[in-house]
Computed example of a mutant assay.
Amino acid sequence: MEYRYLGRTGLRVSELCLGTMTLGRELGENDSFSILNRYAEEGGNFLDTADVYTRGASEEIVGNWLQNQQRDDFVLATKVRFPMGDGPNDIGLSRKHIMSGIKESLRRLKTDYIDLYQVHAWDPRTPLEETLSTLNDLVREGLVRYVGASNFKGWQLQKAIDLSKKHGWESFVCLQPQYNLLTRATEYELIDVCVNEGLGVIPWSPLRGGWLSGKFHRNMEKPPENSRIAVADKEGWSESWSNYNNEFTWQVIDALLEVAEDAGKSPAQTAINWLLQKPGVTAPIIGARRLDQLEANLGAAGWSLSSEQVAALDKASNLSISYPYNQDAIDQRSKGRE
């Protein structure tokens, strides 16, 4: 596996990040260790978790595994924001909740520092200055090395960056957004902000919950039994069959299956490799419930789609762009009049 710099930092991370949401939720400790061991054997060094994943179970498993590893060999990322209890201050990005959150994450992860501490989502109730100054304090205290954001909108991310610059605080070095062939609205503003400001992009759900895994094809009447999409329908998750069973999805999947066959790779590997070639992207976050799924996803690295193959996927997954996001066409007309 190759390594890339995370944004403009000097921190090098493997080009595939291992997401650990399934650890402790769908996998016990032994199976989780098998996944982590295999990822590390392939040179993976970037682990992403969150305090809210099964109320800390994911962090605990990662922490137990790290006890038998060289801690400094790994870039450990976790997040704070969502409810961790029933109390009024057990949620959000207040100074109180962040300080409590970092203490508990360090305890569960059995480490004295977090490499990348991310705010899991925007908190409309807490002044942004309170959140950013607290994150800055954590870096100054040596509890955190870098800070990042997840699930922000473009204006929210830019505002946070500008405030950090104004006050001389540690600024976000990366963004963790949902980004895949079926979710390209991320490109409207977020990717531009990241590229212009030097943030690395670490996309979550590169296979959109399994839709881009190769298990789905046009004319299916329902998702396979026990698939994540079948579960999503029952649980009301966003990647459910009812939300994605439409012409756009099948158009993208048609193109993905065709390009994958042409490339001699699996659809999942093709979808992840497409992301690896996008501007600003540092490391897509892969996940697995089984070892064979991990093996398949690891095969997304070490090769590249051709420019023609990327173009074919781009064309099939292009979203209809309206004002003000169609400014490129307006700019071109303006240049013609200058």
Rank of each mutant, 00 (worst) to 15 (best):
F74E: 01
L76R: 13
A77R: 06
T78D: 09
V80Q: 15
R81C: 11
F82V: 10
G85H: 02
G85L: 02
D86G: 06
G87W: 09
D90T: 05
I91A: 02
I91P: 07
L93C: 05
L93Q: 01
S94N: 01
S94I: 00
S94W: 03
S94D: 01
R95D: 03
K96P: 01
K96L: 07
M99K: 15
G101Q: 06
S105I: 05
L106V: 03
L109P: 06
T111C: 01
D112S: 14
D115H: 13
D115M: 10
L116R: 10
Y117P: 02
H120C: 08
H120T: 08
A121R: 15
A121H: 08
D123V: 00
P124C: 06
P124V: 06
R125T: 13
E129T: 11
E129V: 11
E129S: 15
E130R: 01
T131P: 08
S133K: 13
S133Y: 08
N136R: 11
L138H: 07
V139F: 15
R140C: 14
G142E: 07
G142H: 08
L143D: 02
V147I: 14
G148Q: 12
N151H: 11
K153D: 05
G154H: 06
W155G: 12
W155L: 14
L157N: 00
Q158W: 13
K159V: 01
D162P: 09
K166D: 08
